[in-house]
Simulated assay, not measured.
Amino acid sequence: MFGRSRSWVGGGHGKSSRNIHSLDHLKYLYHVLTKNTTVTEQNRNLLVETIRSITEILIWGDQNDSSVFDFFLEKNMFVFFLNILRQKSGRYVCVQLLQTLNILFENISHETSLYYLLSNNYVNSIIVHKFDFSDEEIMAYYISFLKTLSLKLNNHTVHFFYNEHTNDFALYTEAIKFFNHPESMVRIAVRTITLNVYKVSLDNQAMLHYIRDKTAVPYFSNLVWFIGSHVIELDNCVQTDEEHRNRGKLSDLVAEHLDHLHYLNDILIINCEFLNDVLTDHLLNRLFLPLYVYSLENQDKGGERPKISLPVSLYLLSQ
């Protein structure tokens, strides 16, 4: 699902003598966008290559010529990206656009350049865009894009993502929707995003209160439920595999459980008191006591409450 990115550099426009790394070439590409505001079957490849070339110039300009960002901002060029996306121009364009944006933000190193790209709220509009997440490739590039953005979070850039006035934080709330995605790499990316958000929240009381009051309880509740469901699946694998034919599956389930523990530990060692209180309360009262400890005391087959076997319960409590 998270395969190697395709090569995208190249495919220059216009005369071969034109310097593709220049403000002049960016102006030419802007002209191409203004002449192709509607995506069609005939121009979609041209638009994809144009956006790729713009991205290449921006990455070059980040290191060599800040005037390209001045022009990019002056002409409000990011809005073209968003308009192309909103035209429902097909998976090919969506995939290429997400891939290109991911490459762009991965390679921008100067904060001033980053501020240019994050201004006007276009990135948040892309985050909340209704993509077809049933498409694995779109899902992969989308969550990678969110992960890349989360790695850019700091005390200065967080204000481009968390809006204190509207009490909105799309980067975080959209990411946690995929906490139990069937693809493990998506779940891992979500965990990385949340950890990056929690670390930054320590220095932003408004954002911390937003996370605690609006998202912590439902997110940690769902997370603990997901871990509990996984534990029951692990226990079923142990109890139904008397001849040890499913060692591979059991090994994967144990590894996944250990990943859960590492993630929980990563949250706790951030040492955010508000979050730790909510998380430990859910772990204690919705997982450890009602499942692990209850299973130790009630090994009879009856009852409607879920139980796990004694060996598995002891193993989990010892971790």
Rank of each mutant, 00 (worst) to 15 (best):
N271I: 05
L268D: 01
I270P: 06
L283V: 10
R305T: 11
Q299C: 05
L279P: 04
G248H: 10
H282T: 02
K301D: 15
L253S: 02
D252Q: 09
V254H: 09
F288T: 07
V278Q: 06
S251T: 10
H260P: 02
E297K: 08
Q299W: 03
P290E: 14
K301Y: 12
L275R: 06
N265Q: 14
T280Y: 01
D259I: 03
I267K: 07
S295E: 01
N298I: 04
I270R: 04
L296M: 09
I267W: 02
L275F: 09
D281H: 04
L258F: 11
D266P: 00
R305I: 14
N265C: 05
E273P: 11
L275K: 00
L291V: 03
I269W: 05
E256K: 08
N285V: 05
A255K: 11
E256D: 15
L284M: 08
D266C: 04
L296H: 03
L279E: 03
P290Y: 01
V293C: 06
L296S: 03
L287C: 08
I269S: 03
T280C: 08
R286K: 15
L250F: 13
E304I: 11
L279I: 07
E256W: 00
P290Q: 10
G302R: 05
N276W: 14
V278W: 02
D259P: 00
D252E: 12
T280R: 10
F274V: 11
V278Y: 00
L264R: 11
L291M: 14
L296E: 07
N246I: 07
L275T: 04
E304R: 15
D281A: 01
Q299N: 12
E242M: 05
Y263R: 04
E243I: 03
N298P: 11
R245D: 04
H244K: 14
L258V: 12
F288M: 12
I270W: 02
R247P: 05
Y294W: 09
Y294D: 08
I267A: 00
L279N: 07
N276V: 14
V254M: 13
L287I: 12
N276E: 01
G303Y: 06
K249Q: 14
Q299P: 00
L283M: 14
D252P: 02
R286Q: 12
E242R: 02
L287T: 08
